[in-house]
Design a binder for these strands. Sequence first.
DNA 1: CAAATACATAAGCACATACTTATATGATTT
DNA 2: AAATCATATAAGTATGTGCTTATGTATTTG
Lengths: 104, 104
Amino acid sequence: MSETEFFKALADPTRRAVFERLADGEMNATDLRQGFDLSQPAMSQHLAVLRTAGLIAEQKHGRNVLYRINPDGVARIHQWLSRYNAFWPSRVDDLKQLLKEMDQ
Amino acid sequence: MSETEFFKALADPTRRAVFERLADGEMNATDLRQGFDLSQPAMSQHLAVLRTAGLIAEQKHGRNVLYRINPDGVARIHQWLSRYNAFWPSRVDDLKQLLKEMDQ
DNA sequence: CAAATACATAAGCACATACTTATATGATTT
DNA sequence: AAATCATATAAGTATGTGCTTATGTATTTG
């Protein structure tokens, strides 16, 4: 769950796509393969990388494993990124707007 | 300046350290090498990766090249990350606090 | 209980990456 | 103009990564 691990995990386009699909809701590995031209082991390995990086969590349900986004991982990237807030002042207004929307 | 490029760029610990050093202010390649056990070409190559990823910008000053953080790059990561705001609700309050502080 | 299913692990291979040394390029100094 | 300095580029090499096929391990189904 180091910074290097989660940046490496997201540096792969396939893994980002998997991560983004999980943002829509939890899913098992077989369902996740839909639409990806990827062997079962390849998907399994990608999921292992995302899990080791702390970006996703897994929960066994019988012989299935449900994967979902791990909020702590997302928060961690934000934490890292917050050191550079001073460099994107033009985005602050957008963010204020977002927070306002989240309140409603 | 693709997403893959900037995640790959930040996936290397040395490049993250260089990027973080630049957050303290612009610097040329020679000064940046201070404290790093790294050859001159290695640093030059790292800077090229960060620049191609859109994370830093460069400005020639005679025979020196000043490097600095590119705000657009930082903003870009934020933009990507904003898709996952729903997953870190506990951080929203911290962020509101931060924005309040930035207003003062 | 035997077959099927869901997933993980192992081993091997092609390609990418991060480093090195050597050399090139352009600006500055003496 | 020659030497020096700041940086980039080229080429080679060791290690890492992402894929494959083959196999292992639970769990469920018939």
